[in-house]
Design a protein around this nucleic acid. Structure first.
Lengths: 312, 312
DNA sequence: CTGTTAGCGCATTCAG
DNA sequence: CTGAATGCGCTAACAG
C-alpha cells in the first residue's frame, strides 16, 4: 500500500516512517512485471504508426505522450510501414497483454479485425482520415475530414484560375480519401482529373510522380500532393527543371509539417494540428482506461485549415 | 516448451499436433507479464532521446528498431526534452524492471549516475558527441567526433575566404563540443570567435540567434549552426532581411536531416548517418542482452562527413 | 518422453 | 492498525 503509492491513511505515521526509511536504505523498487501480473495492468500503451520518420507522426506522438505520461503510462512506439502484413502482426502482438490500450493509425486493417482485441476489453483509439465508425465495436475513432480538405484545396486552386490541376499521391493510407475530394472538386468545376500514384509517400515518391507529370506536353499549372513530404519532393522536381513556383507550377501539400514553412517558397498546405489530435486521442483512451467510459465507440471530428503560404 | 516456441525435439510429433490444435482452438496467447516475472526478461528495450520531434532522432530510432525487432524485442520511446530532471527521472524509472536494456542520448546525466543500473546488470548503450568512456562502468559508448567535425566545418569556411564566422547553438547537448571545435579552428586561423547561444535548439532558436547576429554592424559572412534545425531557422532570419545565401551570408548546419536537402538553397551540413548509429547501438546492446559480451564498456567511433551543398 | 509442481514479486485478503 | 497467507500465469526442474 505504502510501496505502491496508494492510500496511506490506514497506516500509522510511525510505521510509515519506518517503511520509508527501509525503502531508501535498501534502494527498493517495485517490480513492474509482478505488479502487472497481479493487477492486470501494465501501465503501458502502444502507439502504432506507419512511419516514425515521417515528421507527421512524431508530432502526433508528442501529443499522445504528453497526456499519457502525466497519467504515468508509458508509450511504446511501433512502425508498421503501412504494410498490411505488419499491421496484422502487431494486432496479434497486442493480445499478449503487453499493453493496456492502443492508439494507432491503421491503413489496411478494418474494424472487424479488431474484434478479438475488443472482446478482451482492450481500449482502442484509431486515427482516421475520414468518418468511419467502428460499427458495433467499442473503438473510438478520431478523424480529420480529408475529403473535405482536399475538396477545399482543389476549389482554392480553381479559384486562382488553374485549369489543369493534377494530384500526386502515395500508395495506401489517407491518400485515397484525399484523391476523392480532389476528383469531386475538379469534376464540379468541369475540369479533367489527373492523378499519379507512386509506391512511396515520401519526397522520393513525390519527386518521381511530379517528374512524370512534367514530362508530357500537357504540363499541369498546379500540383496538389497528398502529403507535405511528397509536395516537397515535387517542388524539387519542378525547380530541377528550371520552372518556378508558383508562377509556372503551383504546389499545395497536406499535413503542415514543420519543414513546410521552411522550404522555398514556403509551402501552402493543410494543417491538421497533429499535436491536438494526439492529445485528444490520448484523452479518449484515458476515459476507457480509467473506466470512466465504456460501451460503444465514439467518433470525433477534428478541424483542418488551409494554410496559405507562397507556393500556390 | 512448445507454447513458448522453444526446443521441440523432446516432444513427440503426436503430442505436438494435439497441443497446436488446442492452442489454435482456444486462441491461447501467453501472458507477457507472467513470462517476464518468471524469466526476468521483458523483451523490451528503452530508447531515450531528447526530442522525438527533432528529425534526427526518429532516424536513429528507425535504425534501432530495425535490428531489435528482428530479435523480437520491443522498443519504448521516451522524451527527456534534454532536461536534467527528466533524464534523472527516467534513469530511476528504468530500475523498475520494465526493460531489459537501454539505448539513450543523455545530455546531463554522467556515467557515475548510471551506477545503480549497471550494478543491477542492465545493459546500457550511450550515444555521445565526443569520446567519453564510461570509465569503470559496463556502459558501451558510441560517438561521432563532434569536435573534429566542427573543426572541419570551420576550416572549410575559412578556406572559402570567410573572415568573420559566427556560431549559433542551443543550450545543452552536443552543442558544447561543437563550439569547442569551432573555437579551436577559428583561433588557429587568427580570427575572432563569436558564439550566440539560444535556449532552444529548434528553428525558433536558430531564427532568434541569427537575428541577434544580423542586428549589429559587424554582420558575419558565415554562420555555423550547431544543428540543422537551427541552421534552417537562421536561413529564414537571413532571407527575411533580404540578404541572400550564400553570397551575403553563408550557412552550414549539422546532422543532415532530410529537410536539409530540400530547403533553398540546399544546406551544407555534416552527415552523421543516424540510421547506422542506431543499428550499431542496437547491435552493441544485443551483444550484452544475448550474453555474448560482458565486462567493461566499449567505445566505438562512428564517421561523419561534410556534405557540400549550396548554402556555403 | 510426459504430467506435475514450485516459486518469480507483488496486491489483496484475512486473521490477529 | 499490522502481520501473514493466497494466488496472478508462466517456466523450469522434477518425478513418473
Amino acid at each position: 500500500m505504502v510501496l505502491s503509492g496508494g492510500d496511506v491513511s490506514s497506516v500509522s505515521p510511525d510505521t510509515l516512517a519506518r517503511i520509508q526509511q527501509a525503502v531508501r536504505h535498501l534502494g527498493y523498487v517495485p517490480n513492474r512485471a509482478a505488479q502487472a501480473l497481479k493487477t492486470n495492468r501494465t501501465m503501458t500503451v502502444a502507439c502504432i504508426v506507419p512511419d516514425i520518420a515521417n515528421p507527421f507522426y512524431p508530432s502526433l506522438m508528442r501529443g499522445i505522450q504528453t497526456v499519457l505520461e502525466s497519467e504515468s503510462y508509458d508509450v511504446i512506439a511501433i512502425n508498421t510501414d503501412g504494410a498490411p502484413a505488419r499491421e496484422k502482426r502487431f494486432l496479434e502482438w497486442l493480445r499478449q497483454g503487453r499493453v493496456d490500450g492502443v492508439i494507432g493509425v491503421f491503413w489496411a486493417v478494418r474494424a472487424p479485425e479488431f474484434a478479438p482485441l475488443v472482446e478482451v476489453g482492450m481500449p482502442i483509439v484509431r486515427i482516421e482520415s475520414s468518418r468511419k465508425s467502428g460499427g458495433p465495436f467499442a473503438i473510438d475513432d478520431i478523424y480529420v475530414d480529408g475529403r473535405a480538405a482536399a475538396h477545399e484545396v482543389t476549389t482554392y486552386l480553381v479559384g486562382k484560375g488553374h485549369r489543369h490541376i493534377a494530384m500526386i499521391a502515395g500508395q495506401g493510407g489517407p491518400e485515397s480519401v484525399r484523391v476523392e475530394g480532389y476528383r469531386a472538386a475538379v469534376t464540379t468545376a468541369g475540369l479533367p482529373a489527373r492523378v499519379v500514384v507512386d509506391d512511396v509517400f515520401t519526397e522520393e515518391g513525390g519527386f518521381r510522380a511530379a517528374s512524370a507529370l512534367l514530362e508530357g506536353d500537357l504540363r499541369p499549372t498546379a500540383i496538389f500532393a497528398a502529403n507535405d513530404l511528397m509536395a516537397i519532393g515535387a517542388m524539387q522536381a519542378i525547380q530541377a527543371r528550371g520552372l518556378s513556383i508558383p508562377s509556372d507550377v503551383a504546389v499545395v501539400g497536406f499535413d503542415d509539417i514543420r519543414a513546410s514553412s521552411f522550404v522555398s517558397p514556403p509551402l501552402t498546405t493543410v494543417a491538421q494540428y497533429q499535436g491536438a489530435i494526439g492529445m485528444k486521442a490520448a484523452e479518449l483512451l484515458m476515459e476507457r482506461l480509467s473506466g470512466r467510459k465504456s460501451g460503444a465507440g465514439t467518433v470525433t471530428e477534428m478541424p483542418f485549415q488551409l494554410i496559405e503560404r507562397s507556393s500556390a
